[in-house]
Design a protein around this nucleic acid. Structure first.
Length: 274
DNA sequence: ACGAGGTCCTGCGAGC
DNA sequence: TGCTCGCAGGACCTCG
């Protein structure tokens, strides 16, 4: 389920192969992934365009073209892989967007459940879109104080606040669970009730865990693949996500699993997190 | 401002 | 075996 580390891994894999390449032909098999752009306009804009840059913002992979940006959010089951061969039937079945490049490769966006989205934004639309997303947690100028100010303003559960893309970019369910465990904070605690010491620990743990996950090429539970089609490895290092009912690695207490916050699974140790 | 709930989508595993 | 059902997930929406 691509969050920040997974999308970062994808764009790092794609960048060397894609930058400078021209899109010879574009194919779209499902229109329901498109947001604010028609099939006709998307395909017309992509065809003949050159990929100038590839980077990540929040959980989005951004392909910078001559005048527009193709913004892909892989959702839960999306992948972006460059193939230098024809797709097998099993691969082609869920290929949503296929960009044939000059000199033969193709970039394929595959998405089984199609909860991912594709946007095509001009410069002005992109600036507005980018402004609406919160700060990048790995940016140097993202401080514990800045995180603290966002948390102080909300009485919602801290886990919900750090997963809110308007407050903080790129953190999803897996890394929110892991960071809160590492920081010793109960996910359901109202964000405004956390103090400066909590802010400092949570800030440090979010950055540490995201960095470690990037180093391991992300977390593969089922569908996530890197830009070269490999599995990630961070699932081997998860301490709480996917481990409800199992013993806490720190104290041995059975980990609690609940859907009380925003109907998403929260896994935590009621003894280590308060 | 906040919580609750629905919507999108399909594969999979549980239960009968 | 073959069916139905609920779940997984993030963003966005409406309603109270």
């Amino acid at each position: 389920m691509p969050e920040l580390p997974e999308v970062e891994t994808i764009v790092r894999d794609l960048r060397p192969t894609l930058v400078g390449r021209r899109i010879a032909k574009a194919h779209l098999s499902h229109e329901d992934v498109l947001r604010g752009v028609s099939r006709r306009r998307l395909l017309r804009r992509l065809t003949g365009n050159t990929i100038r840059d590839v980077y990540r913002r929040a959980k989005h992979a951004v392909l910078e073209l001559d005048t527009h940006r193709l913004v892909i959010q892989p959702g839960m089951t999306g992948s972006l892989i460059v193939y230098s061969r024809t797709l097998e039937p099993a691969e082609a079945r869920y290929a949503v967007l296929r960009l044939e490049l000059n000199r033969g490769d193709q970039l394929v966006y595959t998405d089984v459940r199609r909860l991912g989205t594709i946007l095509l934004l001009d410069q002005k639309q992109w600036l507005a879109y980018d402004r609406a997303i919160g700060p990048e947690p790995l940016d140097e100028d993202f401080s514990a104080e800045r995180l603290g100010r966002a948390l102080k303003r909300s009485r919602q559960a801290v886990k919900k606040v750090i997963m809110d893309q308007h407050h903080l970019a790129g953190v999803g369910n897996i890394y929110a669970n892991e960071a809160l465990f590492a920081a010793g904070i109960d996910p359901s605690k109202p964000a405004s009730r956390l103090g400066p010491e909590d802010h400092r620990r949570l800030h440090a743990e979010i950055r540490r865990i995201l960095t470690a996950a990037i180093r391991s090429n992300g977390t593969t539970f089922r569908d996530y693949r890197t830009g070269t089609g490999e599995s990630g490895n961070f699932q081997l290092e998860l301490l709480v996500y996917g481990r409800e009912g199992e013993p806490c690695r720190r104290c041995g207490t059975r980990l609690t699993g609940t859907h009380a916050i925003d109907a998403r699974i929260s896994v935590f140790c009621h003894r280590c997190q308060s």
